[in-house]
Simulated scan of single mutants.
Amino acid sequence: MSYFKHPLADVQAVNIGKDTKIWQFAIVLPNAVIGENCNICSHCFIENEVSIGNNVTIKSGVQLWDGVTVEDDVFIGPNVTFTNDLVPRSKVYPGAFKNTKLKRGASIGANTTLVAGIFVGAYAFIGAGSVVTKDIPNYTVWYGNPAVHKGYITKDAILLDLQLIDKETGKHYQLIEGVPIAI
């Protein structure tokens, strides 16, 4: 085994990359796929049809349900809630669960809820406590209930306002093919 599993974790999956750490009271079902160098904190649940890339951090209390795909370098804060059924009923199952995808480098703040079937763009940033009800474009900042577009963010995590200005330095940016670039 080239990954670390805490003795109190229940890991049934076999497709787990090297240097990944899975902490106590985490449960990983048999068909889940987890990349290299991930950190799965305590009290997480990862269902069967879940794919997690490399260098992903999933903080405590997160459940990843069937249909969730997490690309490389994503951060998922504590107690983030995913859903996979838009009209849930007890003992009634959809023909297929909705798919939710977090693109490379996205960051999801603590206690955020993501409604089933959304796409969170590359390097997007969602503030803590948000409720995400629609797709989030690459390099954008969203927060609130429901989450509202509040600005932009660079690949290097520099927060920009809606006018693409870094309020700390006053530096101006422009979008080039959807990516904030300093001008």
Score class of each variant (00 low, 15 high):
Ser2Gly: 14
Tyr3Gly: 06
Phe4Gly: 02
Lys5Thr: 14
Asp10Ile: 07
Val11Leu: 08
Val11Met: 09
Val11Trp: 08
Val11Ser: 09
Ile16His: 07
Gly17Phe: 04
Thr20Tyr: 07
Lys21Leu: 05
Lys21His: 10
Lys21Glu: 14
Phe25Ile: 01
Ala26Lys: 03
Ala26His: 01
Val28Asn: 03
Val28Ser: 05
Leu29Gln: 15
Ala32Gln: 08
Ala32Ile: 06
Val33Phe: 00
Val33Ala: 08
Val33Gly: 00
Gly35Phe: 05
Asn37Ala: 12
Asn37Gln: 12
Cys38Asp: 10
Cys38Leu: 07
Asn39Ile: 06
Ile40Ala: 06
Ser42Asn: 14
His43Asn: 15
Cys44Lys: 03
Cys44Ser: 05
Ile46Trp: 07
Glu49Phe: 00
Gly53Lys: 08
Gly53Ile: 08
Asn55His: 15
Asn55Cys: 08
Val56Pro: 10
Ile58Asp: 05
Lys59Phe: 12
Lys59Ser: 13
Ser60Val: 01
Ser60Phe: 10
Ser60Pro: 00
Gly61Ser: 10
Gly61Lys: 11
Val62Gly: 10
Gly67Pro: 12
Gly67Ser: 11
Val68Ala: 10
Thr69Tyr: 09
Thr69His: 13
Thr69Gly: 00
Val70Glu: 09
Glu71Asn: 10
Asp72Lys: 08
Asp72Ala: 07
Asp72Trp: 08
Val74Leu: 09
Phe75Thr: 09
Pro78Val: 00
Asn79Tyr: 13
Val80Trp: 07
Phe82Asn: 04
Thr83Gln: 04
Thr83Cys: 06
Asn84Thr: 02
Asp85Leu: 01
Pro88Ala: 11
Pro88Lys: 08
Pro88Leu: 10
Pro88Tyr: 11
Arg89Cys: 03
Lys91Met: 13
Val92Leu: 13
Val92Ala: 07
Val92Met: 11
Tyr93Trp: 14
Asn99Met: 11
Asn99Arg: 15
Lys101Ser: 10
Leu102Tyr: 06
Lys103Phe: 14
Lys103Asp: 13
Gly105Leu: 06
Ser107Asp: 01
Ile108Ser: 05
Ala110Asp: 10
Ala110Ser: 15
Asn111Phe: 13
Asn111Pro: 04
Thr112Cys: 07
Thr112Ser: 13
Leu114Ala: 01
Ala116Met: 02
Ile118Val: 13
Val120Tyr: 04
Gly121Arg: 05
Gly121Phe: 04
Tyr123Asp: 12
Ala128Asn: 00
Gly129Thr: 04
Val131Ala: 07
Val131Met: 12
Thr140Phe: 02
Val141Asp: 01
Asn145Ile: 13
Pro146Asp: 02
Ala147Glu: 05
Val148Arg: 15
His149Phe: 13
Gly151Arg: 09
Thr154Asp: 12
Thr154Lys: 09
Lys155Met: 11
Asp156Ala: 13
Ala157Met: 14
Ala157Asn: 15
Ile158Cys: 12
Ile158Asp: 05
Asp161Cys: 03
Asp161Ser: 01
Leu164Arg: 08
Ile165Glu: 14
Asp166Met: 07
Asp166Leu: 04
Lys167Tyr: 00
Glu168Lys: 15
Glu168Gly: 11
Glu168Cys: 03
Thr169Gly: 09
Gly170Asn: 11
Tyr173Asn: 02
Tyr173Gln: 02
Tyr173Arg: 01
Gln174Ser: 12
Gln174Trp: 00
Ile176Ser: 11
Ile176Pro: 00
Glu177Trp: 00
Glu177Arg: 11
Gly178Val: 03
Gly178Cys: 08
Pro180Cys: 11
Ala182Lys: 14
Ala182Ile: 15
Ala182Gln: 15
Ala182Cys: 10
